[in-house]
Design a protein around this nucleic acid. Structure first.
Lengths: 221, 221
DNA sequence: CTTTGTCTTGAACATTTGTTTAATACATCT
DNA sequence: AGATGTATTAAACAAATGTTCAAGACAAAG
């Protein structure tokens, strides 16, 4: 019984390579031979360790998707006040996405290709619904406390996600339209963090808070 | 010389089928044989009329992309006041996208797979830069006229696009998280039109306009 | 009717690709 | 050292796929 010292390291290497190739080429475009080359192993080894392309893809995708959901729930789950939470989410979202710019397209494409996988994953973990429920409850109580307006949680959730994720999905178009290179665009997105948070927060502020603004405004003018 | 009456109709049929298959499966996932079946023709005919898969794809993609750019520029190009323009853009964008829900993913995926095509297309038409320039100029003049704040055009442009397009890209995830079916989600997106426009407009309103709000607010309370 | 040029069809081809198999290497245990 | 079971490699396979080719169909022109 061979206990090769680097069996796990080889499997990790294959996973790492698979991750890279699947993310950049998608499921259909990825080639097992390319993954093997990228991992520096004989291409039969990929199927030896992971049985099939489909299975390997599932492992890679589930891992990526799980990490995203966990990150999201860890931010949304705690009991930080809503405005701070929004700033945190926006900041962390944009930073995280910029670290791995191709993941959003990868996720979106794969979920379009195979929406069934999502149902299994979401249903089996009950995770993201909980995330949303937590946020909804917080909105309810902060509304009752008079901190924010009576906003639709779905709209709020979607707005935050849209403003953070879309600019990364649309990077190629955006760079062309705005005549920016990768570096400039990335810099711009980072600078956008404050703007997006302000944008969201100002849209949900309750008239009570606005009253303060108004007092301020009247005093100044 | 055979002048078959339905030559153009067959070519149109192939294009229509190609459009459908490419959009739902992507370039890599699409099969020429499937396109032929969908069009109801012998599969050799596809290559006879369109030479290669790559060429057929280019025709389909360019057509779709051109139409989007034209639609966009026709709205942004005219001299409607900025607030009306925003309402128009949001409304038309959401309506158009709902008609063909799979196009956004198709575009995003393809541009990630092959960003070079975009450069050729944008550079050859000078279209979308013009669109953006027009909008920028309008923002400038409306800022000087005191209608809106001194907003960054890139941010404004991205915010509008994000809020309209992302919810459609993320439909599978959104429906799972929010526990909505296709019909419910579509209804929700339509109802979102006003919210999104209000959201954007309120964020760029100049303090002058806010003064009116304030007067209103004081009178009421 | 024959010719001509285009359209259509079915078969064939070369390549690619995921998967399987058989042989070999090799570490560990007896 | 020999047996055992796992890891690795190279070869082979079958299915799929984009493309090409040769033969036939068919309408229009001569």
């Amino acid at each position: 019984m061979k206990m090769v010292e680097n069996k796990e390291s080889i499997e990790k290497e294959i996973i790492k390579a698979a991750r890279k190739v699947f993310i950049s080429k998608g499921y259909e475009g990825a080639r097992i031979r390319e993954i093997a080359t990228e991992a520096g192993v004989n291409f039969s080894l990929v199927n030896y360790h992971y049985q099939s392309k489909d299975n390997l893809f599932a492992i890679v995708f589930d891992d990526i998707f799980d990490k995203i959901l966990n990150k999201l729930s860890s931010i949304l789950g705690d009991d930080t006040p809503i405005f701070d939470k929004i700033r945190q989410v926006v900041s962390l979202y944009i930073d995280t996405l910029l670290e791995d710019k191709d993941i959003p397209v990868f996720i979106i494409s794969e979920l379009a290709r195979n929406p069934e996988r999502l149902k299994k994953q979401i249903l089996s973990k009950h995770l993201s619904q909980d995330v949303f429920t937590t946020l909804s409850n917080q909105i309810k109580s902060e509304t009752e406390a008079g901190v924010i307006k009576d906003v639709n949680p779905v709209n709020l959730f979607l707005n935050i996600a849209s403003l953070c994720i879309f600019p990364i999905l649309a990077r190629p178009v955006a760079e062309s339209i705005f005549s920016l290179n990768d570096e400039q665009y990335e810099f711009f997105l980072k600078s956008r963090k404050k703007e997006v948070a302000d944008f969201i927060i100002s849209s949900i502020k309750t008239p009570h808070n606005r009253k303060e603004e108004i007092t301020e405004y009247i005093n100044i003018n």
